[in-house]
Amino acid sequence: MIPVDGRAIYGLWLRDTKRFLRTPSRIVGSLATPLLFLVFMGVGFQGAAIPGLPEDVDYLQYLVPGIVGFTMLFGASFAGLSILADQDVGFLKEILVAPVSRTSIVLGRIAGGSTTALVQALLILGLSVPLGFEPASYLSMPLALVFLVLLAVTFVGFGIALASQFSDSEGFGLIVQFVIFPLFFLSGALYPLEGLPGSIRYAAYANPLTYGVDGLRAVLVGTSSFPVLVDFGALLVSSAAMVAIGAFLFERVEAV
């Protein structure tokens, strides 16, 4: 068994990061949907009576962590598209036949996808400040970064696992969008989970994004549905599980 190769991980991370940063249109496009949600809902529902919303929390303050979480979900899951793009140009075949382990390849792609998703999320967080968002404490930003990293790893792993089962980007894009929006709406990103019916609420509790949004809300706004340690533990488990599943499924990809 070929051991994990740090140079291969670094090389794939560097390639994905440079490709993202050198494509301004991709950066702007990845921010458009989250920013629309933030502007229209954050401003449109300002002062509205939202069932379950804490009395001392403005809706924009409540919404921003949810939109940041959505940005991570959207950007990280579509990291799988880069694998299919590499398959189309033949680069995937080259790295699959290289003398490095499939685990190294998966870890490199997860590192690159997580970095690009983090850039997108931090840009959205920065753009929310002029709209009126103010973190409870800027000292909490390192904790927020921990939750963002765990969210990124979880959903990049998910994207890689899903992409490994497809040979065309069109089919992958349809399925990933079909998965993304239910996860988003069942995460408490837009409205408190307490207002959901019991059966749907249980489905929300099985959603990793629920704990990511709640953890971000706890450290950035000072309100949450679960203890921070519960959010952290759930994300730690989900990120480890997605990395393992992504590595397992990628091991079965043929170099053809």
Rank of each mutant, 00 (worst) to 15 (best):
70 F>K: 00
71 T>G: 10
71 T>Q: 10
71 T>Y: 00
72 M>S: 08
72 M>F: 01
72 M>K: 01
73 L>C: 06
73 L>D: 00
74 F>W: 13
75 G>P: 03
76 A>F: 06
77 S>E: 08
77 S>H: 04
78 F>P: 00
78 F>Y: 15
78 F>M: 14
79 A>Q: 14
83 I>Y: 01
84 L>Y: 02
85 A>I: 13
85 A>P: 03
85 A>W: 13
85 A>L: 13
89 V>I: 15
89 V>P: 05
90 G>K: 02
91 F>E: 08
93 K>N: 09
94 E>Q: 15
96 L>W: 08
96 L>G: 07
97 V>T: 14
98 A>P: 09
98 A>T: 09
99 P>Q: 12
99 P>L: 12
99 P>G: 12
101 S>P: 12
101 S>G: 15
102 R>K: 15
102 R>N: 06
103 T>V: 15
104 S>P: 03
104 S>R: 04
105 I>N: 02
107 L>S: 02
109 R>I: 05
109 R>V: 09
109 R>W: 10
110 I>V: 12
110 I>E: 06
111 A>P: 04
112 G>Y: 06
113 G>V: 01
114 S>F: 07
117 A>P: 07
119 V>M: 13
119 V>K: 10
120 Q>Y: 02
121 A>K: 00
121 A>Y: 01
122 L>P: 03
123 L>K: 09
124 I>R: 06
124 I>C: 07
126 G>W: 08
128 S>A: 14
128 S>Q: 11
129 V>R: 08
129 V>C: 07
131 L>A: 09
131 L>I: 15
134 E>R: 14
134 E>D: 07
134 E>H: 10
137 S>W: 15
137 S>H: 14
138 Y>L: 15
139 L>Y: 12
139 L>N: 10
139 L>H: 11
140 S>H: 12
141 M>P: 05
144 A>F: 05
144 A>V: 11
146 V>C: 12
148 L>W: 03
149 V>E: 02
151 L>Y: 00
153 V>I: 14
154 T>M: 07
155 F>E: 00
157 G>L: 00
157 G>C: 06
158 F>L: 15
158 F>K: 04
159 G>T: 05
159 G>K: 02
160 I>L: 11
162 L>F: 13
164 S>F: 12
165 Q>W: 09
166 F>W: 11
166 F>S: 08
168 D>K: 10
169 S>E: 14
170 E>N: 11
170 E>S: 11
171 G>F: 02
171 G>M: 01
171 G>S: 08
172 F>I: 08
172 F>A: 06
175 I>Y: 09
179 V>K: 06
180 I>Q: 02
185 F>A: 03
185 F>T: 04
186 L>S: 05
186 L>H: 07
186 L>W: 05
186 L>T: 10
187 S>T: 00
187 S>L: 00
188 G>P: 11
191 Y>A: 12
193 L>Y: 07
194 E>K: 15
195 G>H: 09
196 L>I: 11
